[in-house]
Simulated scan of single mutants.
Amino acid sequence: MATANTLERIFSVDYKSKIQPIVNVCNWGRGLEDLNSPQGVTIDNSTGDIYVADCDNNCVKVFDCNGQILFEFGDEEGEGKMNRPNRLAICRDRILITDHCCILNYQVNGKFTSRIGKPGKGELEFYDPLGLTFDESNGEVYICDYNNHRIQILSKALTYKTQFGRGNLRFPLDVRLTKEFIYILDRSNPCLHLYNYNLILHKSIISNRDVLQLNGFRFFYIDNSNNILITNYSDTSSGSISIFNSQFDLIHKIPIAYPTGITVDNRGRVIVVCQGYKHFLTF
């Protein structure tokens, strides 16, 4: 559990001071210490360990807070087999991973627990699930069902609860929760949707010259001050991290090649994985 001093540092992160990475971890490859097309990244706040979805190596790599490899996991056969894992989220001792048309449920020590869902358009069926997050207050799980154009909500027991977004969402990429709103990054316009907890659309922030200014966005993260960190790259742009305040004003941009998953740890460090160079960086 974070201490009061740690939480104070999280609330007062000086993003404008973050220009160059302080740690550069991993190279391309198939070995234990290598990454190949890394995607999502998340933190186990109880230990500080960093979990990375190593997409093309079909596993999850676990590093300590200093970037030293600890172990990897991902069954090669059976129900726990990973097939291009993409996003991941941790709640207590459980880690959920979006995979090909299903959700994989593992313990944080790498032990497989269960497989949730199958291909399709119905309840507990998925068509390219991507971003997911936990509601820590009740253990519910919000999942971006990308090509079904919706968000599915699962109970703490990982049973189907409800869904929302059809008609408003086109291609939801990533989802985050704050006390007031459900934030969803949608590839279609592009835009950022805000829903309330009655699952009613509150507003949509559409990317343009003055607001958000997104180009090829991938992942996002919201810190405890409701600052929004978004990774961007496209065929015409090598990439950046764009950081907005809670009023959606751009406060800082960090040039970085091909960033994908992003998070902030309990020390106020920005951790981002990079697809092009197959590594992750700490700012």
Rank of each mutant, 00 (worst) to 15 (best):
I151C: 05
P129Q: 11
E140F: 13
R187M: 13
A157Q: 15
P190S: 13
L132S: 00
D174I: 04
Q163N: 14
Y197R: 15
F171I: 04
T162S: 10
L177I: 11
N189G: 10
P190H: 11
E180L: 08
N148V: 08
G139P: 04
G167C: 06
L192A: 06
C191L: 08
I153P: 02
L132T: 01
T178H: 01
I151M: 01
L185G: 09
A157P: 01
F164V: 05
G167Q: 04
L185F: 10
Y183T: 09
R187H: 13
D186E: 03
I153S: 04
D174G: 11
L173G: 13
C191R: 14
Y197K: 14
T133L: 00
T133M: 00
F171R: 12
K179N: 14
G139V: 00
R176E: 11
N168C: 06
C144F: 04
I143G: 00
P129Y: 06
E180F: 00
F171H: 11
L177E: 01
F181T: 10
T162K: 12
T159Y: 09
D145Y: 02
G139T: 03
G165A: 03
G139C: 03
N168H: 12
Y183M: 07
N147E: 14
L158G: 01
Y197D: 12
L158I: 10
L154F: 11
G131F: 00
L132E: 00
P172Y: 04
